[in-house]
Design a protein around this nucleic acid. Structure first.
Lengths: 343, 343
DNA sequence: TACGGCGCTGAAAGCCTTTTCGGCTGGTTT
DNA sequence: AAACCAGCCGAAAAGGCTTTCAGCGCCGTA
């Protein structure tokens, strides 16, 4: 145990100790420490020195009890392993960071029972608000029971449109990807993506189709190639697409992993990327996109900014500021080497 | 804001409310709810029903204030993005999970100032203990200042041997990898790994060398090929190794990403894996290892178990149980297709 | 019948801080 | 010189809970 000097009354110092040492009352000590102006400069200095000497840290529990505000927030996620929770979590932490807010992290593992349990515990700890992060973009049932604090849903929206949900604009993302390919001069575009059961897959496909329609085009094969989110599917699907549509000159992939698989097949077949065929991924997962051959252009959904927005919205709701509404975040194209700008 | 029925005295119910509704004193209500035996069964029932009706949740702040135990723990990590913090975090949450502990998550971003700031805040919230998770296995300076609660260091050990550190046995992991290759009948083994500045790289290399020495062998080239942790280096290094040691029949890689690069080069060159050359990675990063061609055998360091152990050790320290000591976790081989069992 | 003892309940103190408000001091105004 | 004011400071209450201890009614026993 890395406790301090064991002999010296091993107890966390309280305001009373500080006051005693400084020779003032606790009330004065409190005011001095909290920077209130009803205290003489000299007195404040004495108190501050005493506090420093004892390395006093005010008891946030007592403070929270009194003020009815704890300065804590619960972050309820469904899959920590996923790549989506973490950036959001970081963004949220940033949004709070500078201030006085600490974050309770709970992983419900996608289990409703466990989720309820965690919510109970968090409410018991009197968090000022809750952020609920999903692992898929499909709408999720809102938190069960009536929650006495503001709740913001991030990434996965709440099924209740009255709730505040901060989400990613997957339709826009799909559109962005296709528009980028079009701007590279491509016309024969196929879309290989993940499981059709995912809203994200369907939304991205919708965006892609819309962008193509705007250009008077349509997807090769008339619809997306749905499969799974991994490289293995990407490799297989690429073969299928090449066979069915030898004239394909661009592939929009629903994930970076799929794109990676596509790139591998193209390489196996000696196809020139991006000369003959352009490939664009989705998610901008650095570890995957930055080391493929060629390096993969991808759509980044700015998850960290999304997390930060969730944090800000929660704040606003807590403070009862402006009626915070839902928000949808656009993505951006991160150019690497698998797509070539128009010559 | 998803608050409950706004009209009904919109205030979180307190024990007093419950007591009033049940027609008993707060003292009795407290005892009834906490399952103490100084209360008649009928009375307890009344209280419990009242609590249920109001959906009363005891105020953990008040309780913590009184008992001097908050049931909270601070988890201080240095890089959330990294793949190492998360499993540890989940393991720790599991270790606490069943019980009454909530976890404050703080990301210091590898910055000492920010770390100090977070520690201050956590102590102010009167956490019962701290887990410090590093992003590399290099020893880190212990937390600054005297910390009045137990601290457990996970993944990255504290430089102070008196502290409790739960770490991964990288030397053992390197040994494991080589022993596996030897058991596959390989004798000409090269080691391609990451930056020499990482203790993890050096440790794994040491383990590998020791295992080879035990078998009367040594590494091809006499020492590891140090570089960086990514695929690009893996691809380049594989070419170098093949050129310098045409007889190489196995490569132990310091990371799955390096291994992935090695596999790609071998594939480009038409070499047979695992027939002609075996490849083994390190970290067992599912996303990378499970979709390479062939699928990659790797060393898994059981980070989740490590996290759980950190949680348990922290508990023990908090409860003042057995003097908790440091611990080192072994890894295990996860067989896939890039190494073949001996025929 | 009187009394000891048992089982249950409630009043009150305490945990640590913030905030209100009354009181004290010393200087200024009439 | 009396009244007043500003500036500081301290006593006390509040916030929700647990725990101790005294008290009450009731049963069994002498």
């Amino acid at each position: 145990m890395s406790t301090g000097p064991e002999g010296s009354a091993n107890r966390v110092p309280t305001l009373t100790d500080v006051a005693k040492l400084a020779g003032v009352s606790v009330a004065t000590a409190s005011k001095a420490i909290n920077g209130r102006d009803e205290v003489r400069a000299a007195t404040r200095k004495r108190v501050l020195e005493a506090a420093e000497l004892l390395s006093f840290a005010p008891n946030a529990l007592a403070r929270g009890l009194l003020r009815g505000r704890t300065g804590t927030v619960g972050l309820l996620t469904s899959d920590l392993e996923g790549r989506f929770s973490i950036p959001i979590l970081m963004g949220a932490e940033d949004a709070f960071g500078a201030g006085q807010v600490s974050v309770f992290l709970c992983d419900a593992r996608g289990d409703a029972i466990r989720e309820r349990y965690h919510v109970r515990a968090l409410l018991s700890r009197r968090v000022d608000g809750l952020i609920v992060v999903g692992s898929r973009t499909d709408a999720r049932p809102p938190l069960a029971g009536s929650i006495p604090v503001p709740v913001v849903y991030a990434y996965a929206p709440s099924a209740n449109p009255d709730d505040i949900s901060i989400t990613v604009d997957n339709v826009g993302g799909g559109r962005l990807a296709v528009e980028h390919l079009l701007s590279c001069g491509r016309r024969n575009i196929a879309h290989i993506t993940g499981e059709v059961g995912f809203q994200a897959a369907r939304d991205r496909a919708d965006g892609a189709e819309a962008a193509l329609a705007d250009a008077g085009l349509s997807m090769l094969g008339g619809k997306p190639y749905y499969g799974s989110w991994d490289e293995t599917w990407g490799r297989a699907a690429a073969r299928i697409v090449l066979e069915q549509h030898p004239g394909v000159d661009a592939v929009f992939c629903g994930s970076d992993q799929i794109a990676r698989g596509v790139l591998e097949t193209l390489r196996d077949l000696g196809r020139d990327v991006p000369g003959g065929i352009s490939v664009i991924g989705f998610d901008n997962w650095e570890a995957v996109a930055a080391h493929s051959r060629p390096r993969l252009t991808s759509i980044d959904m700015n998850l960290e900014r999304l997390g930060a927005a969730a944090g800000r919205h929660l704040f606003a709701a807590i403070d009862g500021d402006a009626p915070p509404t839902s928000e949808q975040f656009p993505g951006r194209v991160v150019m690497r080497d698998s797509t070539a700008p128009v010559h």
